[in-house]
Simulated assay, not measured.
Amino acid sequence: MKEFFLSLKVDKPYVVVGDIHGCFDEFYELFNLVEEKYGKDTIIFSVGDTIDRGDYNLKTLNFCMELYNKNRFYEVKSNHLDKFYRYLKGNKVKISYGMQKTVSEFLNLPEEDREALRLKVISYYESLPLYIVINDNVVVCHAGIKDEYIGKADEKVKSFVLYGQTTGRYTEKGFPERLDWTKDRALKQDSPKIVYGHVVFDEPYINNLCYGIDTGAVLGNKLTAYNPET
């Protein structure tokens, strides 16, 4: 599978939503709020990790694919959906606690439905870009991206945008301790905004035109959407 990035010209309202992680109710509520505020043609961009850990993973994924088919939703590749994709392809993967919920939902489906969904999700994931450049001034990615990677889609870029950088240690909350790649960003006059997820913050983290919007919906906090045009 050849990796790629997507460059889009968008002339409609749009927002970027943080990691959903199977929180269907929160996502559906946010989706309706977005439509009320910006209109029913608003496009939703997702930083990925739409599944795992939550209680409605397949329902969330099916809703995302439904919106995608209506040109209302664009998602970037992310570590959790990438792992589920590899599982569906028959690759050997370690099924962690969060992924177990998604796999259990999948295995509880009737065999015919399971196979249909397997093929559907494989096709969907293979259609997703590593990151999306919107109107040349906003980049949507999962774990982040360095400026020198924008315009590239090799394995080094894939590793960074899916997993980011870590120290090898863990935080008090049990998450891998991540390096803040935004601190060393050297801004230029034409530097794009970078909107990303993956790293959980209590509130959106903003630094050097980088916007971390995973605010831990699945951990009982909240689901965040950001309008880069405001």
Rank of each mutant, 00 (worst) to 15 (best):
L67Q: 11
K40T: 15
D55C: 00
I122Q: 04
N79Q: 04
R53S: 04
E36Q: 12
Y87G: 11
K70A: 09
A116P: 05
K94I: 15
D113G: 10
D41Q: 11
D82M: 07
L109V: 04
T102E: 06
F106K: 14
E75C: 01
L67A: 11
L119F: 13
I44A: 04
L88R: 05
L81H: 07
R118E: 03
M65C: 10
D113S: 13
F73C: 09
T50E: 09
T50Y: 04
V76D: 06
R118Q: 07
I122F: 02
K37T: 12
L88C: 12
G54V: 01
K37F: 10
K101M: 04
I122R: 01
I44E: 00
Y87A: 13
R118C: 06
S96K: 13
K59E: 03
L107F: 08
D52A: 02
E75K: 07
D82W: 07
L117K: 08
L117E: 08
Y38I: 04
R53T: 03
L58V: 09
F73H: 07
L88D: 06
V76P: 08
S78I: 01
Y87D: 08
N71W: 00
S123A: 12
G54Q: 00
H80R: 05
E105F: 07
R72N: 05
K59Q: 02
P110E: 14
L117Y: 13
T102R: 01
M99H: 03
Q100P: 00
D82C: 06
L117V: 11
